[in-house]
Amino acid sequence: MSRPEHQAPPEIVYGGEEAAKYAGNSRIAAIQAEMASRAVELLNLPEGYPGYILDVGCGSGLSGEVLEEEGHVWVGFDISPAMLEVALEQEATGDLFLQDAGQGIAFRPGTFDGCISISVLQWLCNADKTSHHPKARLTRFFSTLYSALRRGARAIFQFYPENDDQIQLIMGCAVRCGFEGGLVVDYPNSKKAKKFYLCLFAGHEVNGVKQQLPTALGEDEEEPEEIGVQYTSKKRNDSRVRSNRRKPLKDKNWVLKKKEQLRAKGDKTASDSKYTARKRRTKF
């Protein structure tokens, strides 16, 4: 699959057409909701504690719905006006902002009880304008986020890292801004269900207890539950795929016709058999 962040800046990729998909496409919605609820689970807020949560890259407000169900009040921002419009149409319950994470966030210190973000961080590794420096943007984002979080609060980022360097870059920036924590990889052995969650703690101790990195799901080759999104690809019984395969120009009929012509001319011709016009076995 091609990576959308290679195509164009986020506000353009998530323009009108792509944004409309988020309003209608149930598979996208299901995957997003599943990742969001996992992220909320990783936030590890006390049971029944209604928090004030930040959603970075809230898009159409899908993850906000999950937060809402858990009883939290949320604030979200996104860089794509088209996605925010979808959020408005869907009557998202949180407060929305048009904001670029790389420019830092504009909240007072200690505001939020937690922060979640679904597939955003990899976008910050891009330089879409000459003035963009990924490292500086990540640092600005993490440092403002660190101060906007309550001490001991967590920030959970689901993201799609392109390679190890990107993970190193992101985690390096986060650590330099004061965060602690690490990477949780769910279903590391599955190709499609594998998900990266960066778990950051703003302050390592809560009430004198050291925060532990949550355990990942499915580390012992266990498959994701079937209830949610199905990750096993369906065998496509598509005739379209087969008909697209190129037909050989000189098929059996063509060969038989040629041989007939040669025989009519009186040339020496091999007799027809089941091997006629078959492809030779590939040799090593």
Binding site: I79, L88, D95, F97, L98, Q99, D100, Q103, S131, R140
Partner: peptide, 14 residues
């Protein structure tokens, strides 16, 4: 606008 504040900054403000 529409209840959404525009928090984007110009390049020289970042």
């Amino acid at each position: 606008r529409d209840g959404i504040p525009n928090m984007l900054l110009a390049e020289h403000e970042v």
